[in-house]
């Protein structure tokens, strides 16, 4: 079971969180013309590679905040975690 550092609450076991997928996906702005390709890239297409992966988790049984987690998809090592509004350098 992963051990995730919630930036708001500290180290917590994974069963307090729910997963939210690739955090690098950006929703196109509202009321903007979006091409089919751009929209499909947002809704469906994912890189999902082996190695470092920036992803969303929600601390659902805790502070209910969505956070960003940088994790290795092969080893599950967690490098860094970020608040929702924190820029990932």
């Amino acid at each position: 079971m992963l051990y995730i550092n919630c930036p708001h609450c500290g180290m917590r076991s994974q069963n307090e969180f729910s997963y939210g997928g690739d955090a690098s996906v950006k929703r196109p702005e509202l009321n903007k013309e979006v091409s089919d390709q751009e929209w499909d890239d947002f809704v469906y297409n994912r890189k999902s590679l082996r190695g470092k992966h920036l992803e969303l988790w929600q601390h659902i049984s805790g502070c209910r905040q969505w956070i960003k987690v940088e994790r290795d998809t092969a080893t599950h090592e967690i490098f860094r975690t970020f608040k929702a509004d924190e820029e990932v350098a």
């Binding site: 939210g20 929703r27 969303l56 929600q58 209910r64 905040q65 969505w66 929702a84 509004d85």
Partner: peptide
Amino acid sequence: LEYYLQLV
């Protein structure tokens, strides 16, 4: 709702 409010 929380997803859109916190992230988007």
